[in-house]
Design a protein around this nucleic acid. Structure first.
Length: 483
RNA sequence: GGCGCGUUCGUCUAGAGGCCCAGGACAUCUCCCUUUCAAGGAGAAGAUCAGGGGUUCGAAUCCCCUACGCGCUACCA
C-alpha cells in the first residue's frame, strides 16, 4: 500500500452544488491535510442524460466559498489528470476489456427491452429483480456472430457464485456480503462509457486514492468494488462510510424536503465558517466537546473513531443559530464587508456602514439586512394610525404626545445625540401621564413605522435631525386625522 | 421481498463495564437586563439509553433475538 495519503470527492455535475458534496469535502480534505496528503476533486460525468454544463464551475465556486478547495482537480492542476471522467473513457474501455480477457467479465448483448421484460416477469412472480446471466456463458461462435452483426453490448462483471467478500470500514468495522447476493452488474454501458462502479475503481486506483471516504449509501456496492480491485490485481484502498444527511423524516436528504443547494445558503447569507461548523457537527464532534469551532480545528482533530454511525437530521434552525453566533463575533468593519455583496447597488453604503453595527445582534443571516433596515434607506413604510396609539390611549393622546416631541426635537441643534433629548422625553411623558416606554413607542413607530425595530437612539442618530423631524410631522398628521 | 447499515432528551450529540437514577448544544418555557425586538445572563422542563433476553458483583456501554428506521437492489451516481 502506498504510504501517500490521497483522498477525493467525486460529485456528479447534475445540478446545483449539493450540501452533501460540501459535507464530504470537509472531512475528506480535513483528513487528507491532517495526514499531510492531498485532497482531489474528480468529476463523475458519465451519465450524459443528467449532465449540467455549468455545474463543475459551480461546485468549484462553492468549495472556494467554503474554503474547501481541493489540491487537484479540473482547472486546479495536478499530476493525476484528467479529472473529468468523460475525458478518461479510453482507460475504462481498456480496463473493462482487460477484465473480459482475463475471464472476469463478459459481453452482454441483451437489449433493454429484454431486460425490462425480465424485470416484469420477475415482478409478476414476486421475485427480486436480478439479471438472469443470459449472456454469461455465450459460446465463442455466438459472441463472434453478435460482434460481426455489430450488435451493441455492455460488459458485465462475472461475479463468483461462491464465497463472500469482506471489507473493513474505518467507521463501522468489518462488513461482509455473500457473493451470491450480487448480480452480474454492468461495468461498461453500450455507449462505451463506464458505470459508476467501474469508473470509481479505475480512477481511484490510477489516482492513487488511499482512503475512500464517501456516504453510507455506497456500502452496498463496496463489495463489488473490492471484487474489481482484486480482479484487476490492485491494492484495495481503505474505506470509510460517513452517515447520510437526513431530512426531518429521516429519509436521505433531498431537494424536495430541504434546501440542498449550496448556492441557496450563500444567497441567504449563511457564513461559510458557520456552514463548516454546522456540517462538522453532523456525525462528528470535537474531542473536548466544544461546539463552536473552525475548519482548522477539524483538520487538527479529525479521526474516524469520532464519527457517528447514525444519520443526522439536517436542522436549519440549528444552522441559523450557529450563523447568528458567527455574525455576532464579527467586528463592525468585518460585518460591513461581509454585508456588501448582499446590498442593492443603489443603497447608500456609508449609511449602511453605520447601520450594520446596530443590526449585528439581530441578524441571523446576512441576507436579512435589507428587509430589516428598509426604513433607514427609504421613506417609512405605510402604517395605520392606531399603531401610534398607546395601549390605554386614544389617537388624540398620540397627537398631543407627538406635538410635544416635535417641539422638543426642533429645539435641538445638530449634531445631536440621545443625551440631548432623552431627559426631555421623560419630562414629556410625565406631563402627559404616560409611561416613558409608551412615549418611546410612539416615537419608535413614527421613526421606523413599526413597533419592532432596532434601538431607537441609534436609529435616530443615524437618520439625523431633519429626517426624524419629517417623520414625526408625518406621524402627527396621521394621528390628528384619526382623532 | 432480499441484502446491508443503523437505533441515547423534539433535533445535533457526549458516553468506549462502575465517575451516568446519563452531560452539553439547538429548539421550548420562566425569570433577570431593557424604550420594542434581539443579544446577553440565570433557571426549568425534556431520554425507563428502541424492546426483550443473556454475560457480569455491576451494562447506555459486551453477546443474542425482535421491532422499527434508513440505504442499496438501474446501460443513475
Amino acid at each position: 500500500m502506498a504510504d501517500k495519503v490521497r483522498l477525493r470527492i467525486a460529485p456528479s455535475p447534475t445540478g446545483d452544488p449539493h450540501v452533501g458534496t460540501a459535507y464530504m469535502a470537509l472531512f475528506n480534505r480535513a483528513f487528507a491535510h491532517h495526514r499531510g496528503g492531498k485532497f482531489v476533486l474528480r468529476i463523475e460525468d458519465t451519465d450524459q442524460t443528467r449532465y449540467n454544463p455549468s455545474s463543475v464551475q459551480e461546485i468549484l465556486d462553492s468549495l472556494r466559498w467554503l474554503g474547501l478547495l481541493p489540491d487537484e482537480g479540473p482547472g486546479l492542476g495536478g499530476d493525476y489528470g484528467p479529472y473529468v471522467q468523460t475525458e478518461r473513457r479510453d482507460l475504462y474501455l481498456k480496463s473493462a476489456h482487460e477484465l473480459v480477457e482475463r475471464g472476469h467479465a463478459y459481453r452482454c448483448f441483451c437489449t433493454r427491452e429484454r431486460l425490462e421484460a425480465l424485470r416484469q416477469e420477475q415482478a409478476a412472480r414476486r421475485e427480486p429483480p436480478r439479471y438472469d446471466r443470459h449472456c454469461r456463458d455465450l459460446s465463442g461462435e455466438e459472441i463472434a456472430s453478435n460482434l460481426a452483426e455489430s450488435k451493441p453490448y455492455t460488459i458485465r462483471l462475472k461475479v463468483p457464485d461462491e464465497g463472500h467478500t469482506t471489507f473493513r470500514d474505518l467507521i463501522r468495522g468489518d462488513i461482509t456480503f455473500e457473493n451470491k447476493e450480487l448480480q452480474d452488474p454492468i461495468l461498461l454501458k453500450s455507449d462505451g462509457l463506464p458505470v459508476y462502479h467501474l469508473a470509481v475503481v479505475v480512477d481511484d486506483h490510477y489516482m492513487e486514492i488511499s482512503h475512500v471516504v464517501r456516504a453510507e449509501e455506497w456500502i452496498s456496492s463496496t463489495p463489488l468494488h473490492v471484487m474489481l480491485y482484486r480482479f484487476f490485481g490492485w491494492d484495495v484502498p481503505l474505506f470509510a462510510h460517513m452517515p447520510l444527511l437526513r431530512n426531518s423524516d429521516r429519509s436521505k436528504i433531498s431537494k424536495r424536503k430541504n434546501n440542498t443547494s449550496l448556492k441557496w445558503y450563500r444567497e441567504q447569507g449563511y457564513l461559510p465558517e458557520a456552514m463548516i461548523n454546522f456540517l462538522a457537527l453532523m456525525g462528528w464532534s470535537m474531542p473536548d466537546g466544544s461546539e463552536i469551532f473552525g475548519y482548522a480545528d477539524v483538520e487538527r482533530e479529525f479521526t474516524f473513531e469520532r464519527v457517528t454511525t447514525s444519520g443526522p437530521v439536517f436542522d436549519l434552525v440549528k444552522l441559523t443559530s450557529i450563523n447568528g453566533k458567527y455574525i455576532r463575533a464579527l467586528s463592525d468593519d468585518e460585518l460591513f464587508e461581509r454585508l456588501l455583496p448582499y446590498l442593492p447597488e443603489e443603497m447608500d453604503k456609508e449609511r449602511a456602514r453605520k447601520v450594520a453595527p446596530v443590526l449585528k445582534d439581530r441578524l441571523t443571516r446576512l441576507g436579512e439586512f435589507v428587509e430589516l433596515t428598509g426604513f433607514f434607506f427609504g421613506p417609512v413604510p405605510q402604517y395605520p394610525a392606531d399603531l401610534l396609539v398607546p395601549k390605554k390611549g386614544t389617537p388624540s393622546d398620540a397627537a398631543r404626545a407627538l406635538e410635544q416631541v416635535k417641539g422638543l426635537l426642533e429645539s435641538l441643534k445638530q449634531p445631536w445625540t440621545h443625551e440631548d433629548w432623552e431627559s426631555g422625553m421623560r419630562v414629556i411623558a410625565d406631563n402627559l401621564g404616560l409611561k416613558a416606554g409608551d412615549l418611546f413607542m410612539i416615537l419608535r413607530v413614527a421613526v421606523t413605522g413599526s413597533k419592532v425595530s432596532p434601538p431607537l437612539y441609534e436609529s435616530m442618530e443615524i437618520l439625523g435631525r431633519d429626517e426624524v423631524l419629517s417623520r414625526v410631522d408625518h406621524a402627527l398628521e396621521l394621528a390628528r386625522k384619526a382623532s
